[in-house]
Write a protein that binds this DNA or RNA. Structure first.
Lengths: 109, 109
DNA sequence: ATATGAACCCTTGTAATACGATGTATGATA
DNA sequence: TATCATACATCGTATTACAAGGGTTCATAT
């Protein structure tokens, strides 16, 4: 997978995951790898700053889990603002897709 | 349109346009604006460096047009390498789309 | 004549980003 | 006890998109 193409799409991907259910960071990397059939590995140097950024923007919030005998995990959950932003990004994605479609058929225009 | 989301997609968009037929830079901005129903304006500060970059990578080549009585225009045309790269980027785009699709249905996984 | 604006090309500076490298700690397993 | 997977985090580097600015040419309006 072209890493340059992930630029700008990282947030959309993470928001899509978190919208389904609360996840912790490390779990996201594993899940993305599995969902992409091992094609894409999000580096932790990408993931954790991205989560911080999204929290700062108010799209997600986090909480620590502390069950007995388990390792601590920091879970992320969506906010209303995050849902709004996700919808916005989904629309943008669709717009770019439409633009690409038209570009491939624009010889005479 | 979210400008952060354009990152990494600029090259794909431009390659898609140039693959259809040779274009000059200024023409590309007008065409993109029209194809997007005025929603997206690619700034010239984005366009020209992008074209230079792609030429440096061997994806496109350029030539000046010099018809009588017309302004000079710098046209860009695809190379074999550019076609290969376009196909690669189209596959990457499809992969991300598939990943997004799966992410939205991954509650139990 | 000349002012204006559109068409056309380009560069520079800034902020944001993705990621490799690196660090730390804990729990399980060999 | 050594090692590996799990889990969180930061820093430095290269790359990027874009606003702002600069320049030329041509047509049209004043």
């Amino acid at each position: 997978m072209d890493k340059e193409m992930m630029k700008g799409n990282i947030d959309l991907i993470l928001l899509s995951l978190i919208a389904e259910r609360d996840l912790y960071g490390y779990e996201m990397t594993k899940k993305l790898k599995r969902l992409s059939d091992e094609a894409y590995s999000m580096s932790e140097g990408t993931l954790y700053p991205a989560l911080k950024r999204m929290e700062r923007k108010g799209w997600v919030t986090s909480y620590w889990s502390a069950p007995e005998g388990e390792r601590r995990k920091k879970y992320y959950t969506m906010t209303k603002e995050g849902e709004t932003e996700l919808e916005r990004k989904q629309k943008d994605w669709a717009s770019i897709q439409s633009l690409l479609y038209k570009a491939r058929r624009s010889y005479d225009t």
